[in-house]
Design a protein around this nucleic acid. Structure first.
Lengths: 239, 239
DNA sequence: TCCACGTCAAGAGCACTGCTCTCTTATTTG
DNA sequence: CAAATAAGAGAGCAGTGCTCTTGACGTGGA
């Protein structure tokens, strides 16, 4: 982490960064399969084969970009969370809004991690951990709210099929979220709603439906928060 | 539509179909950017340049496949709808289930129409009408249910920001759906939840979360139906 | 200090892609 | 039957990911 020892090491680290930066730039204009190693190397004034010293294949470069994207999203979203002292509903709102904001500002990186998978590309195990950060933050907010009495179980708790109850139980233990299965289920539903909505907006499925989508987004997030069981009211502020 | 006049016309129609079939086959194994005109022509025993007599560009072929996919999904979903005489909630369930079923059976075609847009590809206007069929069917079900008194406004109707209320009003008039804005909004939320959920399952975001996803899916659809305002109870049958 | 080793850039080359052009053959139409 | 039209074949262009070989250079050990 500190200043690398040899000059070679430092040059290597720097070039690796530059390659990723340029690749990201190309990603922004051409999308995932518009990313060309030759074009990257050309932009960097080097020959294409030299690039293979840094990334053994196009897929490896993509993997690096995917991890960076997950990290960037995770960092920004975590930074947008006002923290456990704030009302849970406000935290939920802030985090959801940041997800959308990040997605709109980094469309192609969003497509890279939440869009259709690149055919032939198998995401290595190293990408799954960074990919869970946002989801874990979301359940963390629900969990904090639940413990603080700011999230309550739905009045008419729906009966879950036993298989689902077991699945949710297993999941709850896995992520250490001691929530009633019905609440956990609703949280997952809201999670999918959030990313479905962001994806629809980004991928043009909303043009002419709710367009611009800002007000709808805010409202939907609020509705889903109520759906999960957050206390507080809908419609406080919409941006 | 009847037997085309000349032999040439018939041959052309047949070859056009064969090209699309082979392209679809390649789509299934390689995804959108695994679709190669040369490979298609090779599989059909013709030279690549000849293919351009049928589709002037790769994008045109893609467009044809996209429209076919929308049509296929639209047809199957419409066929799965038990019709206006059935309880609205049952119709909703059946249609949602069919969307998922079709998506699972036609992963790459689903990715083609609901996944991240192909960079550099601009979907022509001809694709938008077939793309609306499923959504229109869904609001149709809500509308029928509303008229039949099987869908009711939420007890504590959330207040919508005026801008959103106007947007929804405009949309309601556009698609001729005379629904309260709050109900229309919830329908849209559920719509996004549905496709978000299907997308997550298809694109591997659910592995290790709710996996297998069948029970969760059924439950979520039911929850969202209740959320919209459908009468009837949750948990009748899950597949 | 010197030098062998490991690292790196460069370039040529392979097999592939979408697409365009020309040329020839087959079919339809007046 | 002849002219017009449509279709297929093939070469070629510029681009792609990736591999291999060649030559230059910085670095750690003797």
């Amino acid at each position: 982490m500190n200043a690398s020892r040899t000059a070679r090491d430092r040059a290597r680290a720097e070039l690796t960064r530059e390659i990723k930066d340029e690749a990201r730039r190309q990603l922004a204009t051409g999308g995932a399969d518009g990313l060309s190693l030759r074009a990257v190397s050309r932009a960097l004034g080097m020959v294409s084969s030299a690039l293979y010293r840094y990334f053994p294949s196009r897929d490896e470069l993509l993997t690096a970009l995917i991890i960076d994207a997950y990290d960037s999203l995770g960092d920004q979203v975590a930074a947008a969370d006002p923290g456990p002292d704030a009302p849970a509903r406000e935290r939920w709102r802030a985090v959801c809004a940041k997800v959308r904001e990040w997605a709109l500002a980094n469309r192609n990186e969003y497509a890279l991690i939440y869009g259709s998978p690149i055919p032939g590309y198998q995401a290595p195990q190293t990408t799954v951990q960074p990919g869970t950060r946002v989801s874990l933050l979301l359940v963390g907010i629900v969990l904090d709210g639940w413990r603080a009495g700011q999230v309550s179980e739905p009045d008419k708790a729906p009966t879950l099929p036993t298989e689902l109850a077991e699945e949710l139980d297993r999941l709850g233990k896995l992520i250490d979220a001691d929530l009633p299965p019905a609440v956990l289920a609703r949280m997952l539903i809201a999670w999918m709603q959030l990313f479905g909505m962001v994806g629809f907006e980004l991928f043009g499925q909303l043009v002419g439906v709710v367009d611009p989508s800002g007000y709808f987004f805010g409202h939907a997030v609020d509705e889903m928060a109520t759906f999960i069981g957050f206390d507080g009211t809908i419609g406080a502020e919409h941006r």
